[in-house]
Design a protein around this nucleic acid. Structure first.
Lengths: 209, 209
DNA sequence: TTGACTGTGTAACAAATGTGACAGTAGTAG
DNA sequence: CTACTACTGTCACATTTGTTACACAGTCAA
């Protein structure tokens, strides 16, 4: 695991820290679609993403969901540390968007490692990135209509999957964006008429990028 | 200023840090309604809130706004540090909700002070709090209808102002929630019929709390 | 082939929110 | 007092989004 860490986080952390991490952490592979975290699941570990992409959702009491952002190589999830502790109300869900590899650092080391400047910078930056991404979600929800939001959603997926051709169904999109399948089908059709996408069965091709 | 710092942040920071802060920072009073930060205004200082309340908005390109949260005594604004640097798109706006007193710490000390454990804990907690509050904004926008959102908005104002009787007009609310005055008047009337509020000219009385 | 299942398209309608217009009312400046 | 302004209430209508229902197409297994 140390080699994997060196390769993916060597530019961020000094070797001493890498060694420490490798000694206490757990390396895991997950398949696309696997749920990494759901609702009350206790948050005892902090993920470092080696390869792949994890999508993070906000859930409400009725299990409706709203996609927030994707974690990619080199990311960690700042929300892990906080949001899922002692909250009754809504929670977070994490699902692998593609096959992924992660290293799980036990939460207690989170603070121990702060003695390394590179680690505190990493955590700090991670918070910053999450804040920015949450603000973008807020922009989307507060200021945009569904067609624009949907198009942005599709563009994000294209970037994450490195593929203009998305394998996804209308109902999945509806669920991730907290709306209904009919609405998504309707807006997708509109985007197709605007030549921004092409619709196929189980697939959506995003044209302009 | 050192006395003010001791009184308000003494439970958070060791005296040595308080002295350092007092040496480099600027103490300011602002009146309710004053704008502390808008759009491109360069973010060279980090505010520590001594007394009062500051409301933070997200702005879009067309100057529409969406209220995010309030800063209160002992808070700082994590967004200051990051979000307003080098962004073209949308920005943040900060307005005093009531008469307030702040201490402005020059941004460069932000990092210097990290050598104090109490300071890094403070910054860390601040990030955490902001994340949670942004998630609540997302919950509100993604999962709630306007009547519920509006009622929550009014309840927040009551807490911030320590007064069930809010001095506010419908158009102000509309602006802060990025909708129109007519819509707000309509929903307010609905809340009044549900006996949750009472409407007066320039005033709204929040009943249940 | 048939039948079951899933995914998509679409119509008809409902609900929520946004917009424009206008009247009435309180407060204020002159 | 009068004139002006800001705030509120309300109507009529537009737009956006959500819901129900149903037809049809692709896939897969018996």
């Amino acid at each position: 695991m140390l080699d994997v860490l060196r390769e993916n986080f060597g530019h961020l952390f000094e070797d001493e820290l890498l060694v420490e991490i490798s000694r206490v952490s757990k390396y895991t592979k997950v398949d696309a679609g696997d749920t990494l975290m759901e609702l009350g699941s206790s948050v005892t570990h902090m993920p470092l993403l080696i390869e792949g992409a994890i999508k993070i959702f906000r859930l409400d009491d009725d299990y409706r969901e709203q996609i927030l952002y994707f974690l990619e190589r080199g990311d960690t999830c700042a929300l892990t540390l906080n949001c899922c502790v002692g909250k009754v109300h809504s929670e977070i869900k994490a699902v692998a968007e593609v096959d992924s590899e992660l290293i799980f650092v036990p939460a207690e080391y989170m603070e121990t490692f702060l003695k390394y400047h590179s680690w505190s910078k990493f955590v700090f930056d991670s918070f910053n990135n999450r804040l920015v991404e949450l603000l973008e979600v807020i922009d989307s929800l507060a200021f945009m209509k569904l067609d624009e939001r949907l198009y942005n959603y599709l563009r994000d997926k294209v970037l994450i999957n490195s593929n203009q051709l998305l394998e996804i169904t209308h109902s999945i999109i509806a669920q991730e964006m907290n709306t209904s399948r009919v609405v998504i089908s309707r807006v997708l059709k509109k985007l197709e008429l605007e030549n921004k996408i092409k619709l196929h069965r189980n697939k959506i091709e995003v044209i302009e990028i």
